[in-house]
Design a protein around this nucleic acid. Structure first.
Lengths: 130, 130
DNA sequence: CTTGACCTTCCAGTTTAGGGGAAGGTGCAC
DNA sequence: GTGCACCTTCCCCTAAACTGGAAGGTCAAG
């Protein structure tokens, strides 16, 4: 009842993306209209919106696919979702910590460069600020 | 006087990486020994260490290549380095801000899931926590 | 004379989430 | 009958920084 472009637009995606998701197993293989066009329902839009929320939370398509597989197997995936969110939280904390440490390193180098002793700009070496 | 493996080891890299850097223009095309082996000097190790410091600061190979090109043209690249470091700082701040915002979103979803009203684990829907 | 550790080149693949575009079918309006 | 928007499959491309592996050359030791 819904063609691919309409469905994609309803979920804020492109037709290309829907075919890609089908390919990756995030969407079940679509039914076809007599003319060969993929045929979707409202449920697909819900599913796409779920995928989009997952992406917004920084989950990978593989992780989202895992959630959907649990749900497609007939189980409530909430426990699984909770675990994924917990892992995502700790991953984010680790990433933030890493970037913060990197920022401190870079800030130190930058401060040295900004305090710029021109003598240190020595053609004999590459750059003493780095 | 130094073969590729030795040079790579001295800089904490692999021979593959040195060939790759040569290919990308970060290392000048190497001299060759009579048998066709690449031949490096101490200077190469210094250059590789400079590249490594740049990577440690989160600079891309392209940015580092830019610094080296300035220096190879006979100029002191310190001003250029200072600019790159400033840009890197603001990029890092933006990234950290983005990840921090994402963390807040995920934490919210996770808290809702942890406070877990089991009724919300409804087979009719995908998962109300996401 | 062969083993083994080096070295050479070149080609291909890794990861993520799609995008670009060709060649061709469908279906409605003018 | 033709223009137009839409759909189909197919294959290649992107960024980043390498890594793996195949096929073959070099050289010192045993």
């Amino acid at each position: 009842m819904m063609r691919i472009g309409e469905t994609a637009a309803a979920a804020g995606l492109t037709a290309k993306t829907l075919r890609f998701y089908e390919d990756r197993g995030l969407l079940p293989v679509a039914d076809r209209a007599p003319n060969g066009y993929r045929d979707y329902t409202r449920e697909t839009v819900d599913r796409l919106e779920f995928i989009r929320r997952g992406r917004t939370a920084g989950l990978t398509l593989t992780q989202i696919g895992g959630i959907l597989a649990v749900r497609d197997a007939g189980q409530a995936p909430c426990i699984h979702v909770r675990e994924l969110l917990a892992k995502q939280l700790s991953d984010l904390d680790a990433q933030i910590a890493e970037l913060t440490a990197l920022r401190a390193t870079v800030a130190e180098a930058h401060d040295a460069a900004a305090a710029g002793d021109p003598v240190r700009c020595n053609p004999e070496q590459i750059c003493s600020y780095l």
